[in-house]
Design a protein around this nucleic acid. Sequence first.
DNA 1: CTGAAAGCGCTAACAG
DNA 2: CTGTTAGCGCTTTCAG
Lengths: 343, 343
Amino acid sequence: MSRNRPTIYDIAKLANTSTATVSRVLNDTGYPVKEELKKRVIKAAKELNYTPNLVGRHLKTSKSNDIGVIVPSISNPYYSLLVNGVENVARKRGYNILLCNSHRDPQREKDYLESLYQKQVEGIIISSITSDTEYIKKLQINGLKIAAFDQDIDLDCNKVNFDYYRGGCIAAQYLIDRGHRDIGFISAPLTRYSRKELFRGFADTLKINNIAIKKDLIKISEFEEETEDQTYEYKNGKQLVQQIIKKGNIPSAIFCINDMTAFGVIQGLQKNHIQIPQDVSVMGFDNITISEIINPSLTTIDQCTHEMGSLAAEVLINNIEDENKKYISTMLQPTLVVRNSTK
Amino acid sequence: MSRNRPTIYDIAKLANTSTATVSRVLNDTGYPVKEELKKRVIKAAKELNYTPNLVGRHLKTSKSNDIGVIVPSISNPYYSLLVNGVENVARKRGYNILLCNSHRDPQREKDYLESLYQKQVEGIIISSITSDTEYIKKLQINGLKIAAFDQDIDLDCNKVNFDYYRGGCIAAQYLIDRGHRDIGFISAPLTRYSRKELFRGFADTLKINNIAIKKDLIKISEFEEETEDQTYEYKNGKQLVQQIIKKGNIPSAIFCINDMTAFGVIQGLQKNHIQIPQDVSVMGFDNITISEIINPSLTTIDQCTHEMGSLAAEVLINNIEDENKKYISTMLQPTLVVRNSTK
DNA sequence: CTGAAAGCGCTAACAG
DNA sequence: CTGTTAGCGCTTTCAG
């Protein structure tokens, strides 16, 4: 149980040289070191089972090669995909990611921001759920690089957003083009930017096409129960469609705030022996993987989630490596994915 | 853009005192400092918008308060729950977690182990997917504390395991007790400890009850496609049950390797207008949240996943804080959860 | 080509 | 009560 890990000093002693040389050899800098000495150092390092202490290096170089990633939930497949995108790019460019799960709790989000900052990460990629950006602004003043993705945020920083409004438009237009006039909408509360925009796009498009929005067909729950997985969305979809069915005024198509909600809606309809898409068309939003395999497969809007993650990483790292880079703001565009749940 | 963050030295200068005093005040150690001076320091710190540099502290104290967590997949609801358990305990006891997703890749697992070690984490909680434990052993020799959970591992360390064998027994016995004699088994390849044990328990219990294992009813896929979410399991269940149906020899009950597979099986059966549980009883394993809300709700075996995570954290932190603590090995017990998918 | 030495930000003896 | 100082492990001038 050798509690004291060997340091370059130990290696230097064993190889009968200086710490400077050891550092030069081990880091494989181009610096000229005689072949024989180099070998001695490497041998000594191996013998001692040496591993560098990143903390020491970090303090000296003030380069951690870490970037923090804060998301509201990691089990949500949407965010998993996002994080994967970030991870791949970060790895490729030589950065590690420190992944934090805010659990949709503003306090936790702030705690993590602070903790990451104190750990001297090079930058932070965040899907923020708070509206109080004062704290983040303070960190920016102190030189921390921020990239915000997924949710909109009142902050001057790198941004990778998604055009939810157009997503809503595309969905509505698609259903209208297929001849639907009685179109329902089922959602969790419109408390987030993404949901608000989506609904706005949906509603505007109906209006433009002179289709009345029937209040009975717009079902938005009042409260939201935050779960780590998305079971709430599922339950909510199932419950709300039940309410519509009960009233007897069944629409010919239903647009759901996301795929998980759509699954709930499909289950609810099937339970009542309503056929999809023969009786009712159902449309989701997100294009998570399971949408493709469920039966019937789900017509939905793709968010290119993975790309959003990799783009955010790309932009942030560029900003880290080029101090003077201007902030970049990107708006990713939705794509329609037609499958078997609509006709 | 003040690139240079203020240090305690800056505070000392501004407050006209020494770094020692600043450190004492800011860390709120009980050390006596005159009230007036204390106030001056705090004021200066606030004025400079000071945040401690954890890297400096860490190097000095050789205490990082970080523990690493390595899991095969973060989006899998099973592991999310596990991580949540770890996170809660860690927070409570003053540790941060560094979460790593090995993506079931042995190389990534090793990379993360190394990186965490070099970052000087206090300990690592791991659900390892590799069988080559040589590297981990090396780290242990250098003083790193390890707790293994979820999967069995050939390593002398803290362990939090789950009694998969008994889980398989309980499931089989339950179905037998309900009068079932033709019992099917559907699974991904038995490549992991957990799956092997589960099947062993299942098979042994049939044998003990003098029930023949019918090869036609045991469907185990040969290859596994690793996806970040568990869509593979779902697809696999659906496909394999299809094969059973085609042969026409339909069992009265099917035990599935996990809940996601069971969902696939249920879908496959329903597609063929086979009613659950009237025609066939379906049983899962895991008790993930969605099992409760799906229709029919799923009879399954609970793994107390969250508890497993918190226990692992508890045990590891005890070991970190008390150097001489002996390794603890715990075996969590399964519980039967009866719902509506069996009769 | 090699080594001595400074110093990153912080804490903790130790001395006063 | 307060300050001086050493040093955690590492990289990097600078001098030889």
